[in-house]
Structures are given as structure tokens and as C-alpha cells.
């Protein structure tokens, strides 16, 4: 289980990207983090495996305090956290198989990595995982020959080859078309269930979050402003997350939510505009 307490990050530029965020992720639930651009979603997820070094608070994975680990220990901890990126971040000039196998780098010796030697078991598993993400037969393709959806599947395969205890996913669908986005989300849901691991996912599209997540967390200006089930995410909660509105009191509630409904009616694109604006 992942347990984040009072996580803070102030960049060297002085940007306070996280102002103390806490949350737990357990079991095999999918937790979606939503929020406008610049809310600190990416910073949050990157602070968990310390690709970005947090400036305060703690991250604990299965009882291991990640924030206090030495370099070597951190590498071991990272093996337990599979990460999936918006821009896929595949090694473009290597084959699909090598990209998938790179998920095992935390386990092989440097000398073997240098000679690009992987255990037979790893190779066999890589084939299985490729079948599972629907890329059987593509193992010899170069990553830069694939479509966006296929690349993201390779990214997912790389992460699950780590046999992680959690998947950290940063906007997996922002570079994909709506249909491919759904396929990727379906795949992530399937993995969470089958491998029995939790998925923490940053996502722009609120409708996708509502459809797939078990729980939704709303970030705004580096602070958690919402947490609840998709059903809890009503118009006032959206207003709070995306427009910084105070929780409306009951007297004006009906009126206000009507206004909000109008603007938030045509969800995904509209959310996008709100974010950018």
C-alpha cells in the first residue's frame, strides 16, 4: 500500500507546486488525480518515485519510507513502482522487445545490461506481456515505427515487466485519440485486477476518470481540494477543482449549479479549455 503524507515540493524557481498533499492508495483500486494544468499532478506523481525530489513530507510504500532512502535503496524501491508516461518515453531507436526488457534493468547486473543479456525467464515473460497488451508479433519492430496507442502499450508492458507493487501513471491518454484512450484505460483496469496492484493515475479527461476510477482526487494549486467516489464528483466539486469556487452554500446552490452545468455540459473539450484558460 502506498501512503503519502503531507507531501511538499517547492521548485528552485520558487514555484510551490505541492503544498502538503496526503493520500493512501491500497488494494487494487484505481485512483485518478484530476485538476487544472499546473495544479501539481505531475509533480505529485514524480515525487512518489523521486524523479522529482520532494522538499517535505513522506512517501511510504509497503512500510518502506521512500523519501529517506539512499541512492542504492531508492533504485530498489523504484523497481516496485512501474511508471507510465504521457509521452511514452520509449527508447525510440530500440526494438519493442528491448524496451519491454528494460523494465528488468533494476534486476540485472550492469555487465549483463552492457551486453544486453537478459534471463530466459525474463524474455519468456516479455513475450507473454506483449501478448497481454496486444502487441504479440511486434517484438522486433522499432519503437519509433509504432503508432501512439501501440507505444503506450509498450510503455505499459515495460512497467509491468518490473512486477511492480503499484503503477504510477502520468496522463497516459493525453497524446492519444479518444478511442485509443479507452483501450489504454481498459488495459490498465484489467492489469490492476489481474495483478492485484493499485493504479495511481493523473488524468485530464474528467469523463474518463469518472468512468474508470474507483476514487477521484482533485488537486488545485498544489492542494487536495476534493476526494471521493466518481458519484461524489458533482458540479460544485468540479467548480471547486477547476475554477476555484468556494463550496456553494445551500441558498444559492441551485442557481449556481445550473450555471455550472451549462459550462461543464460538454465535458472533455470544455474541461480542456478551462484548464488552459
Amino acid at each position: 500500500m502506498l501512503s503519502v503524507t503531507d507531501l511538499q515540493k517547492t521548485y528552485d524557481t520558487g514555484d510551490e507546486a505541492l503544498k502538503g498533499v496526503s493520500m493512501d492508495v491500497t488494494g487494487n483500486e484505481m485512483v485518478a488525480v484530476i485538476g487544472p494544468s499546473g495544479a501539481g499532478k505531475s509533480t505529485f506523481i514524480r515525487c512518489i518515485n523521486r524523479l522529482t525530489e520532494p522538499t517535505g513530507g513522506s512517501v511510504e510504500l509497503d512500510g518502506v519510507e521512500v523519501t529517506g532512502l539512499s541512492k542504492k535503496e531508492l533504485r530498489n524501491a523504484r523497481r516496485d513502482m512501474g511508471m507510465i508516461f504521457q509521452e511514452f518515453n520509449l527508447i525510440e531507436r530500440l526494438t519493442v522487445m528491448e524496451n519491454v526488457l528494460s523494465g528488468r534493468l533494476g534486476y540485472v547486473s550492469t555487465w549483463k545490461a552492457f551486453r544486453r543479456v537478459f534471463a530466459g525467464d525474463d524474455i519468456e515473460r516479455a513475450y507473454e506481456v506483449l501478448d497481454r497488451v496486444g502487441l504479440g508479433g511486434h517484438e522486433n519492430d522499432r519503437a519509433d515505427e509504432l503508432s501512439g496507442g501501440q507505444r503506450q502499450r509498450v510503455g505499459i508492458a515495460r512497467a509491468i515487466l518490473q512486477r511492480p507493487k503499484i503503477l504510477l501513471v502520468d496522463e497516459p491518454t493525453s497524446s492519444l485519440d479518444p478511442e485509443t484512450s479507452r483501450e489504454v484505460m481498459d488495459l490498465l483496469t484489467e492489469i490492476a485486477a489481474e495483478d492485484d496492484i493499485p493504479v495511481l493515475i493523473n488524468i485530464h479527461e474528467v469523463d474518463l476518470a469518472e468512468e474508470y476510477a474507483d476514487r477521484i482526487v482533485g488537486l488545485r494549486d498544489g492542494q487536495k481540494v476534493f476526494e471521493g467516489t466518481p458519484a461524489d464528483l458533482d458540479e460544485s466539486a468540479r467548480g471547486q477543482i477547476y475554477r476555484g469556487e468556494e463550496i456553494p452554500d445551500l441558498t444559492t446552490g441551485a442557481q449556481q449549479s445550473a450555471v455550472v452545468e451549462e459550462t461543464a455540459g460538454s465535458t472533455p473539450t470544455d474541461e480542456g479549455e478551462t484548464r488552459r484558460g
Binding site: 518515485n49 524523479l51 533504485r75 530498489n76 524501491a77 523504484r78 523497481r79 513502482m81 511508471m83 508516461f85 518515453n89 520509449l90 527508447i91 525510440e92 528494460s102 523494465g103 528488468r104 534493468l105 533494476g106 534486476y107 545490461a113 510503455g155 515495460r158 518490473q162
Partner: peptide, 10 residues
């Protein structure tokens, strides 16, 4: 790409 490989624990 560098970050992705780092994130695997390499």
C-alpha cells in the same frame, strides 16, 4: 527516455 529508464530502478 532517460527518466523512464531511471524509473525502472536502473
Amino acid at each position: 527516455q532517460v527518466e523512464a529508464i531511471k524509473a525502472t530502478g536502473a
